[in-house]
Structures are given as structure tokens and as C-alpha cells.
């Protein structure tokens, strides 16, 4: 059984420009101990999906229209605020993108970390402090004891992101949601943080949802990848299969449009024509159809469903929301 199951999640925002369905019918399951990559461009709904899992969608303007998030037999979307609070940061925790703004500048590192343990574990100050020092040591911070008395501004970006990770892991969560955890960091620091996440996952068996726009990060970190476009999942596959043989035209276009470090080709890059869609005015059919080279007239009529195309590997079925790909696979 899956650790976390999301069914048909729909999150709507009522804005001045009209109603925007940031997440429109997303379903997926997260298995114990795996890393699931969630890829998409800005506005594709990947962050909002995960804010919904954590009960952090601001309401209003956000409205969770429908769907369910099953965790240990209960629907997280229906939990009361205190119950959700008990879960959040405890069994399901999150690392945010920007280490510069997601720590409280007025509190010492030690205070911010200890609060987590005092709230969720009921530890006393002294005990909490000891556990925090150990947690900082675990994420590779030298002299953790003295770091506890420092403020966030006294540390570099990489160091702050380590503290965010240490904080997220304090209660040994079963699910860790990492929303662009390395996007704000330099590559050499990014490499350190990714190495740290791999290592922690191996030791603790935490299941990770990794949200990113960087296909390189996904390739190295995740077991399976889901691709989102305009609020919907358009392709799901095991990482190796997805990169070797992308089935949705958008995924294929994305992979073609990134320059490669390992080759010196001088040909122009293959880009995806057009602009990302305006979520307040989506076309009636497939949201990608206006930019899709293979689109036919029927693409503009109905939203394609995410369907199984084949049984690629026993553990991970392949899904794509494109009737063209799907009919090819069947014939």
C-alpha cells in the first residue's frame, strides 16, 4: 500500500483576472522510502499541489474544490487544524526553496529548532537543545553547539539550507516534501545538499517528494518522475524510462530544449514554440495543444486523460495524457 495517496486534487484561486485552477485533477501515490520527482515550469501547479498536502494553501483566495489526500487511513484535507498541526513538521515535513527568507531572522537557530521538538515531542529546553545539536551535526554543520546561538544572518545560504533540512528531519518524518531545495544555491553547494539528502534518505528511509524545474537534479535524485503542465499531470514514468523515451510531446520538448554539458553541438537548440499558457484562459482541450507540433484538430476538443500506455517495468507503470502517444502504443 502506498504511504500517501492523492486523488483527483483540484485547487482553485479566485483572482482579479478570473478563476485559476492551479491544480486540476492531480492523482498520484507516494511509496514508502522512494523519491518522487515532480517537474514542471512556473505556474504548472507543482508547488500548490504540495502546499495542499501540507494544508498550507492560503484560503481565501485559494479553494480546495475537491480531492482527497490519504495518509494512514485518514484524509488530510478533512483533518481539523490542531490534528493537521500535530502531523505537519512531525510526520510530514517540508523544505522550502529560499533559505534566505524561510528562517525567522529574530530567533537564534537553536530556538527555532528546539521549538519543533518542544511542540511535537514535548521535550524540555535542555533535552531539545541536545537533540538539535546532534541534528546539526548530522547535516554536516561543524561546531553545532556554537551554531545554535547564532542568528540566520550570520550564516551562508548553503548553511541555512542545511539548517532547514535539519529542522525538517528533527522528528524523523516519513514524508519529506522538498520544494526546489537547491534552486537558490550555487552548484557546488547544490551538490553538497543533494548528497546530504541522498545520504539521509538511505539512513532513515524517508519518502521524498522532490519538486524542481531542473531536469538534472531529477535525473540524479528520483526513482520516478511526474511531469506537470498547466495544473495537470501529463506524464508519469520511472526516471530512467522518462529520460530515455519521453512519451508526452511536452516532456520530449523539454528534454530537447536543454543544452547539454557533455556535448559541444553548435546546432540551434530545439525550443518549444510559443509561451506558457495563461491559467485564467486555458484552451478547451489539451493545454499544450497550441504549442504542440503534433497536435491534430481533436486535441482542441477534450482534455486528454492520463492513461496507462504500457507496463514498462513491473514497479512503475507509464502514464501519459496524450491520445496520440497512447494510440501509437496500442497499435
Amino acid at each position: 500500500m502506498a504511504l500517501l495517496e492523492v486523488h483527483d486534487l483540484v485547487v482553485r484561486f479566485d483572482t482579479h483576472h478570473g478563476t485559476v485552477r492551479a491544480v486540476d485533477g492531480v492523482s498520484f501515490a507516494l511509496q514508502e522510502g522512494e523519491t518522487l520527482g515532480l517537474v514542471g515550469e512556473s505556474g504548472s501547479g507543482k508547488s500548490v499541489t504540495n502546499l495542499a498536502l501540507m494544508g498550507l494553501v492560503p484560503q481565501p483566495p485559494g479553494v480546495i474544490e475537491s480531492g482527497s489526500v490519504l495518509y494512514e487511513g485518514s484524509d488530510l484535507l478533512k483533518l481539523s487544524a490542531p490534528k493537521m498541526q500535530a502531523l505537519r513538521g512531525n510526520e510530514i515535513s517540508m523544505i522550502f526553496q529560499d533559505p534566505m527568507t524561510s528562517l525567522n531572522p529574530l530567533l537564534t537557530i537553536g530556538r527555532q529548532l528546539a521549538e519543533v521538538l518542544e511542540v511535537h515531542r514535548g521535550l524540555g529546553r535542555k533535552q531539545a537543545r541536545e537533540s538539535c545539536a546532534k541534528a546539526l551535526g548530522d547535516v554536516g554543520i561543524p561546531e553545532p553547539e556554537s551554531r545554535l546561538d547564532q542568528y540566520p544572518h550570520e550564516m551562508s545560504g548553503g548553511m541555512r539550507q542545511r539548517i532547514m533540512i535539519a529542522m525538517a528531519l528533527l522528528c524523523d518524518p516519513r514524508v519529506l516534501i522538498a520544494d526546489e531545495p537547491t534552486t537558490a544555491l550555487d552548484v557546488t553547494i547544490q551538490a553538497q545538499i543533494l548528497e546530504l539528502m541522498r545520504d539521509l534518505q538511505q539512513r532513515r528511509g524517508t519518502a521524498i517528494i522532490l519538486i524542481t524545474h531542473d531536469l538534472g537534479v531529477v535525473a540524479g535524485m528520483s526513482d520516478r518522475v511526474h511531469v506537470m503542465y498547466a495544473g495537470r499531470l501529463v506524464e508519469a514514468a520511472a526516471t530512467v524510462d522518462l529520460f530515455r523515451d519521453p512519451r508526452h510531446p511536452y516532456t520530449a520538448g523539454l528534454l530537447d530544449s536543454i543544452p547539454r554539458l557533455s556535448t559541444s553541438e553548435v546546432e540551434p537548440l530545439k525550443s518549444i514554440a510559443g509561451q506558457p499558457p495563461d491559467l485564467a484562459a486555458l484552451p478547451a482541450g489539451c493545454a499544450f495543444a497550441p504549442r504542440c507540433e503534433q497536435a491534430i484538430s481533436s486535441c482542441n476538443e477534450a482534455v486528454p486523460l492520463l492513461e496507462s500506455i504500457e507496463q514498462a517495468t513491473a514497479t512503475s507503470p507509464r502514464l501519459a495524457a496524450c491520445p496520440l502517444t497512447n494510440s501509437e502504443a496500442r497499435s
Binding site: V187, T188, Q190, A191, L194, D214, L215, G216, V217, V218, A219, G220, T239, V240, F243, L255, I258, R260, L261, S262
Partner: peptide
């Protein structure tokens, strides 16, 4: 060597 490559096998 720190740049993640968009290719799971190479990576």
C-alpha cells in the same frame, strides 16, 4: 562535476 546531468544513467 557538480552540475547535475539531465540523464539518469550518466548522472
Amino acid at each position: 562535476s557538480a552540475v547535475p546531468l539531465p540523464d539518469p544513467e550518466q548522472e
